[in-house]
């Protein structure tokens, strides 16, 4: 059959015993009056995107040739970094730092659960008691989301000093904003049927949230929680760079003291940590689905 794909459908097929029909009914396709309009709008979209990129290249000093001329510097850097320093002292320090980073990410995620849940319930249109509360909850969530975790970290470092605790506090703040927003959207998307059924049975707002909304969206909430844990472990790495402890702090130190081989060891440990967290959260999410 496929051998005849290029034949005109009207051509009678006589030479193949497999094809019984001698003619195929066809119908001319009517002209699409919107086709020129569609083509025009695509051209316009592409033109706008090209112009935006020209502006962006200009604004960011995007010059690939600088990479070529600077290749020597990079080669020197890599030459110093390779081979990585696998001395037991460096590896022990790296693993202990990586674990601190993991604990910062864990606490930053779990301690923000009650705050995120409360703000999500108040900030979801379907569960919020009224528009005033809804708007206030949304505003609080937006604030925590808008301030980057690294800014929170700098603020908390001045309050509680350098170290992992500042990192945990920073992640709690930022994660409350992001996770609360994601959770409130999950709650708004849930089938309103069970909530309606409980309302007609005389259940109050809290009973409806606790027994219809939350159990219905629990798999989504858990999935989002694991996703945020994944992101927060990576964030806590960056927070270490500004003094909030963990392996990020060690990386920063090794760069400042030009110990690039030590830095590479730390980066390899970070890679392992990120892969493990990623695999673990993907595995749990799959189990939940």
């Amino acid at each position: 059959m496929s051998a005849h794909g290029t034949q005109s459908p009207r051509t009678p097929v006589t030479d193949t015993p497999t094809r019984r029909r001698t003619s195929v009914r066809t119908l001319p396709v009517p002209p699409d009056s919107r086709a020129p309009w569609r083509a025009g709008s695509w051209t316009a979209i592409i033109a706008i995107l090209v112009i935006l990129h020209l502006f962006a290249f200009e604004a960011t000093d995007f010059r690939p040739d600088a990479l070529v001329t600077g290749a020597r510097g990079m080669a020197n850097f890599l030459a110093e970094a390779i081979p990585p320093d696998f001395s037991p002292k460096v590896i022990t320090a790296g693993i202990s730092g990586a674990l601190t980073t993991l604990w910062i990410g864990l606490l930053g995620t779990t301690i923000s659960i009650p705050f995120a849940l409360l703000l999500a319930v108040l900030g979801a249109r379907t569960t919020s008691p009224n528009t005033v509360v809804y708007q206030i909850a949304r505003a609080i969530l937006s604030f925590f989301r808008a301030v980057p975790d690294i800014v929170f970290a700098l603020i908390f470092v001045t309050a509680v000093g350098l170290g992992p605790f500042a990192g945990v506090l920073a992640l709690i703040c930022h994660n409350t904003g992001v996770m609360g927003k994601l959770w409130s959207e999950a709650m708004e998307d849930v089938d309103p049927g069970p909530e309606q059924a409980l309302r007609t049975a005389g259940a109050n707002r809290f009973q409806i949230v606790a027994n219809a909304t939350v159990p219905s969206v629990l798999p989504q909430l858990t999935g989002l929680l694991l996703y945020r844990f994944d992101v927060n472990v990576r964030s806590s790495l960056v927070l270490g760079l500004v003094g909030a402890g963990g392996i990020g702090l060690l990386i920063n130190k090794s760069i400042k003291t030009f110990q690039f081989d030590t830095m590479l060891t730390y980066l390899i440990i970070v890679l392992v940590l990120i892969i493990v967290v990623d695999l673990a959260s993907a595995w749990i999410r799959k189990k939940l689905a």
């Binding site: 049927g193 049975a201 027994n211 219809a212 798999p219």
Partner: peptide
């Protein structure tokens, strides 16, 4: 009220769903 789309909470047990009738 009994609904066309039933409106039980699928992840809760039958008994827990029935308990919801007595929430008031």
């Amino acid at each position: 009220t009994v609904f066309q789309k039933i409106h039980l909470v699928g992840r809760r047990t039958a008994l827990q769903n029935v308990c919801a009738g007595g929430f008031s």
